[in-house]
Computed example of a mutant assay.
Amino acid sequence: MRSPITGTAAGVPFTALPPPDDGPAPLIVTWHMLDAPRSDPAFAAALPMHDLPAWRVHLGMPMCGARMVNGTMDAGLELLRTDVLMSALHPFVQQATEEFPAALDSIRAQLPVADGPIGVLGGSLGAAVALRILADTATPLFAGAVVNAAIRLRSVVDLFDGDYPYDTESDNVVDSWDFVTKAGSIAERAPLLVVSGELDHPALRADAVDLVDAVGPGAELLPIPGLAHPLADEPGIEPAPQQPLARDVDAGLTAWFRRHLPAAS
């Protein structure tokens, strides 16, 4: 097991886990949850995919981890209270998506990653970023995976108290982050693993089934018995020992990416 490498890629903090052997290796890029683990080093500790012959580069989401304001999540939580969709969820995933191309170029400049297609992985809200890369970009990909995913942003908004006051703008925004409607584009891009905790929020579990059904033969559903939404204990900011259920997720992801991993070039 080799030590993590930390740094920034075009201003985005990252935690990179090297492959077991030296030399260029394929790249998998991840985005973490807003629930625990809610930072790139914590997500790397929860889902390290050790022994996978690939670089696993975990990117930090906006206002999380190294990008927290004054070292706490308070500012991000205040945005959730102000307007859960238009002040928090949408700007977070939009920013993470928009900053990805420059971050990827920087990763390739800093680390000995192989040329060619990459893998993408996202947990919860970070899954919306991974799905956007799958559905709406031309980034070459060999496989994708999501865990307890924000597949329909409307389902995530519904998890918060009260009836959200949708208007024309927010309706358009939330519908643009419905990846079941983008299943055809995803199916044409790369195989997709959808990991779903059997104790996750019912709406998110239903969305996971809908996405796999809509994508068709290129998608697989991996239920994890006993798993709720988080993958780590609170506060979920610092790296922590891997929990048994996270280990089950990790094993499924490792097997999935190993199956689709391209040869290094």
Results as ranks from 00 to 15, higher is better:
Glu238Cys: 03
Gln94Ser: 11
Gly236Lys: 07
Leu52Trp: 04
Asp207Leu: 08
Gly71Glu: 01
Arg56Lys: 15
Pro112Ser: 01
Gly71Ala: 03
Pro20Thr: 14
Pro225His: 04
Val84Ala: 13
Gln242Met: 10
Val174His: 05
Val12His: 08
Val29Ala: 00
Ala264Asp: 07
Ile107Arg: 02
Ala150Thr: 06
Gly65Ile: 13
Gly184Glu: 10
Asp161Val: 04
Leu121Ser: 14
Val174Ile: 07
Gly7Ile: 02
Val174Ala: 12
Leu204His: 05
Gly76Gln: 02
Phe14Ile: 06
Gln94Asp: 13
Ala102Glu: 15
Ala114Ser: 15
Phe92Lys: 00
Leu227Gln: 08
Phe43Asn: 11
Pro20Ile: 04
Asn172Phe: 13
Pro140Glu: 14
Asp158Leu: 09
Leu141Glu: 06
Thr168Gln: 09
Arg258Tyr: 00
Pro37Thr: 00
Asp178Arg: 07
Pro165Ile: 11
Leu104Asn: 07
Pro48Glu: 02
Ala246Cys: 08
Pro140Asp: 10
Ser185Ala: 12
Leu34Met: 10
Leu204Gly: 02
Ser124Asp: 09
Leu211Pro: 09
Gln243Arg: 15
Ala42Ile: 01
Trp177Tyr: 14
Asp74Val: 05
Met68Tyr: 10
Leu193Gly: 01
Ala206Ile: 09
Pro101Thr: 00
His50Ala: 15
Ala128Gln: 06
Gly60Arg: 13
Val129Gly: 11
Asp200Asn: 05
Ala150Tyr: 05
Leu89His: 02
Phe257Pro: 13
Val212Met: 15
Val157Gly: 04
Gln242His: 03
Val195Ser: 04
Leu34Asp: 02
Ala187Gln: 05
Gly184His: 03
Leu261Ile: 11
Phe160Pro: 04
Ala127Cys: 03
Gly236Glu: 00
Ala251Cys: 03
Pro244Thr: 14
Val157His: 00
Leu211Ser: 03
Gln242Ser: 09
His50Pro: 09
Pro26Arg: 11
Val69Gly: 07
Gly197Met: 11
Asp51His: 00
Ser185Trp: 01
Phe160Ile: 08
Ala10Thr: 06
Asp175Lys: 03
Gln95Lys: 12
